[in-house]
Each structure stands twice: as C-alpha cells, then as structure tokens.
C-alpha cells in the first residue's frame, strides 16, 4: 500500500518546482521542465543565472570534418550526425557551440566587439529556445513559469523573456498567483570577485530591496525570488578565493566563507515573507527557517548535467512541506 493512500488526501496544495543557476545547460533545463511534470508541479520558478559562460568554437577543417575542444579534450565530428551529437554535448554542459570556418574564427578573435556580439546573440537565442519549449510544454498543461535572470545574465535576455505571455520575469515586479500568493523577485547580487553585469554594491542592493519590500502586499503569502542568498547562513557558504581566484585551503580543507548579502538577510528579517528562494552559491544547497520564512537555495551541478531543485508544497498560506531534489 502506498503511504499516500495510507494517510489519506488533504486539501488543495499548490506545488512549486524551483530551480536556479542552469548556466546555459540544455540538459539541466530540459530536466527542470521534465521534473515539473514528473512531480506534478503547478508553478515553475527559476532563480537566475541561466546563461552560459563560454562559447566553444567547432571549426570546419574542410571536407565536412569539424574539430573543437571541450574541457581541454579534442573532439572531432566527421558527419552531420556526429556534429549534432557534439553540439548537444557542448550545449548540455552549458556552453554554446558555434560552427565556424577557420577564417571566421580568426576574425572573431581579432574583434572583441564582434566576439561579444556573437556571445550575446547565442545567449539570447538559447533563452528564446528555452522559452519556446516552456511555452509548448507548460501552457497546454496549465502551468505557469516565473523565469528570473541572475547577476551573471545580460540585461538583453529580459527582453527575450518578455516576448512570452505565459512566462513572467519577477525581477523587481510583483505578480499575483492563485490562493492569494504573490511573487516578487530581484536578480541582482552584491559584488562578486568577477564584477558581473548585475552585481551591485551592498548599499545599492539594499535600496532595491527596500523598494521590493514596499511592493510586498501580503508577506504571509509572499514568495520572494532573490538570486543572492542571505549572508551568514548555511545557504551562502562558498570557497574563499585568493587574489588570483584560486581556492584557499588550510589544514587540507577548503576555507569557506559567507558570500551572501547582509541586505538580503535584513530584508528577510524585516519583511518575513512566507518563502524566499535563492541560488547564486552553487555549493550551498540547503534550507533553513529565518523566523517564519523558509529560505531555500537549490544549488547547482549544471556542469555535471545534474538538475538540482526544490519542490515546495503550499497550503492555506503556509509552506506545508518541501524537498530538495536532484537528478
């Protein structure tokens, strides 16, 4: 006998499937969509950092033969089928395969503007494909998706997201869900060693959070998606780096430090939303209670092709239960 039957059913539950930090991984995003169906989610939420970090040039060597390097290893494709497979492999780890001729590659490398433009186009195109996939799969099933960028994502992808009616970007916006729940978000992060496009100084981040706090109408039913986790919690612990961005070790252990935002912690302490969803620190998947707020960082293992997410059951204005999943 199944436990569910043993203990009987209950009242209407709204189930959220949350994921973050896909970093361009086609495989992880497709698993995210699949997971929503597998676990019968009603709503999907994405916490940012959705674009990839690199392009992999797959250079035509002549005669229909192609060559590219993935993680330092030479990969060859000598037929159309092999080329498709190589493109998929590259896309699955979050990179963008670009099929180019040798002279085209040289041209790109010589022109930083052109290189950046190509990168931006690749990122936007993949996001557009993802939105189309979501639209195709989710809309007929009556599922809604909230898809927010993160500090690593260019602002131009916001425009791509906005092209799709059934997909909402909650970055500094407020949306109402059924049962009186409301969704708000913030894509920015405090400054990282990489000074990413949406990184802000802590004071500026605080100002945006103050504005966000003013937008919250019913904290007891509010879901806030804030890319960066609260400072000084188990959700924001990551390896400390030296000035060369190398991990610092001591006693043979990685030295960890808090990399979250004090302003986010203060926001949660003050506003006390029902649910706070975070990402940003891949190593720090977890969950904790901050007052009445359940804060979750789903973490990320996109490079391994593993989707890490969180299932959250809402019932009667409360988080009834939650579970971190991976697969």
């Amino acid at each position: 006998m199944k436990f569910g039957k043993l203990f009987g059913g209950s009242s209407k539950i709204t189930r959220i499937m949350y994921g973050s930090d896909f970093h361009g991984s086609e495989l992880v995003y497709r698993k995210f969509i699949s997971a929503a169906f597998q676990y019968k989610a009603d709503v999907l939420m994405v916490g940012g950092d959705v674009t990839g970090k690199a392009m992999v040039p797959v250079v035509h060597q002549g005669g229909g033969n192609y060559e590219g390097f993935l993680f330092g290893r030479r990969e060859e494709a000598n037929s159309g089928e092999e080329l498709e497979k190589l493109k998929n492999t590259i896309s699955n780890v979050g990179f963008y395969p670009i099929i180019i001729e040798k002279d085209e590659a040289a041209e790109l490398e010589a022109d930083p503007q052109k290189m950046s433009g190509r990168f931006e186009a690749e990122m936007c195109e993949r996001i557009r494909q993802w939105m189309q996939l979501a639209d195709e799969k989710l809309t007929p099933a009556g599922m809604k998706m909230y898809f927010m960028p993160g500090n690593d994502d260019l602002y131009s992808i916001d425009d791509v997201i906005s092209e799709f009616e059934n997909i909402s970007n909650p970055d500094m916006k407020r949306f109402e869900m059924e049962e009186g729940y409301e969704v708000l978000g913030l894509s920015n992060a405090n400054m990282t060693p990489w000074a990413c496009i949406r990184d802000l100084e802590e004071d500026d981040l605080k100002k945006k959070l103050d504005t966000l706090a003013g937008m919250v109408q019913n904290p007891e039913r509010a879901i806030v998606i804030i890319h960066v986790p609260p400072y000084g919690t188990p959700l924001d612990s990551c390896p400390d780096l030296d000035k060369n961005l190398k991990i610092i070790t001591q006693g043979g252990q990685v030295v960890m430090k808090s990399a979250g935002s004090p302003a986010v912690k203060a926001f949660i302490d003050k506003v006390q939303p029902m649910l706070a969803l975070h990402g940003h620190i891949h190593e720090s998947a977890g969950h904790l209670r901050i007052g009445r707020t359940l804060a979750i960082n789903a973490g990320s293992e996109y490079a391994e092709g593993i989707f890490k997410g969180a299932l959250i059951n809402l019932e009667g204005g409360k988080v009834k239960g939650h579970l971190l999943i991976s697969g």
Binding site: A54, M55, P57, G68, F69, F95, L108, E109, S116, L245
Partner: peptide
C-alpha cells in the same frame, strides 16, 4: 581557439 570565455563568475577554482 579552444574556448571563448566571457567575464562571469566561478570560472577557475581549484584546490
């Protein structure tokens, strides 16, 4: 010509 990387977080971190 192996990888065109952009400026983003967490590229090189090894112990």
């Amino acid at each position: 010509r192996r990888l065109y990387a952009r400026k983003s977080s967490g590229l090189v971190r090894t112990i």
